[in-house]
Design a protein around this nucleic acid. Structure first.
Lengths: 147, 147
DNA sequence: TATGGTTGTAATTAAAATGGTTACAGGTAA
DNA sequence: TTACCTGTAACCATTTTAATTACAACCATA
């Protein structure tokens, strides 16, 4: 089990748009960097558009960021590409036996803990912006050039 | 995407063993509460055994807790049934284009953040024990009786 | 030592999720 | 009109998952 790569790809897309802000970030251009199919990129870009993270128009090539870099958090992306619907990161076994003391209560006993855990995860994501990612990549490239 | 129900079932099993500590918790008995197949229970119990959370022996009916209730955290269970291998809760798109500035750096830029997020989630799980679950269920039953 | 019941596990199946792909309608601009 | 783009539906292949079947190995006891 693991969280869909759409999330990572979403971050990739937004970061790439920023680095290419003087140019045209068409789905084909983005697909070349992510190394996948343009249609798949359009699908994810469509999700980012619905979440108002990017601007993109039918027939017109290229996507642009719809917000300031520092205003887009990884949590925004995470929710935009809805890898996980609310409170359903964990799979709870549904069909416990209601005639059993444990069976009829276990679900309600565990659920709030799992929700808390999920929130903790999301809080970390909310503390990082695309700007942080961009800066990190710039730093990494500089370090490589020094060697 | 979501975390395997093995985790929830694992917690269910340990809790049930505790409530039935005077009796014999055979795989069939447990399966009746979880409402699934005994073989599946044996598989998960086997994982709990490997993690030294329960004691169970071939040919002898019944599983027992191998530790004190308060010493078994949900994180122990989570790791025991290995729903997620270390640092792989998130799926990172693997094949980014190394000729692209973003493509060759995005993975390393994101990875530590995802690891931090995963750790935050696990920390929450480490703060809850099976004892807490047991107590919670007792409370819930009392509340129901009062109504 | 036979018997009934249990754990452990390999093999299989069915269903669901996932990523990827193709195809094409509809839009834009030159 | 033409060339190119986005948006999307439909489809496919692969993997994952839970569930199931089947059986070997094991134990306690009559």
């Amino acid at each position: 089990m693991s969280i869909s790569s759409r999330f990572a790809v979403g971050v990739h897309i937004l970061t790439l748009i920023e680095f290419n802000k003087e140019g045209v970030s068409s789905s084909e251009y983005i697909a070349a960097s992510v190394n996948t199919n343009p249609a798949l990129i359009r699908k994810i870009v469509g999700m980012l558009k619905k979440a108002k993270l990017v601007e993109v128009h039918p027939g017109i090539a290229g996507a642009k960021l719809a917000k300031n870099l520092s205003e887009i958090t990884l949590l925004d992306v995470y929710k935009a590409v809805d890898v996980v619907q609310d409170n359903e990161l964990f799979n709870i076994h549904e069909n416990s036996n209601p005639q059993c003391l444990v069976g009829r209560n276990i679900q309600d006993a565990i659920a709030p803990i799992l929700a808390t855990a999920q929130l903790a995860l999301e809080k970390v994501l909310s503390g990082v912006t695309i700007e942080d990612i961009v800066q990190d990549i710039i730093n990494k490239e500089e370090q490589n050039r020094e060697r």
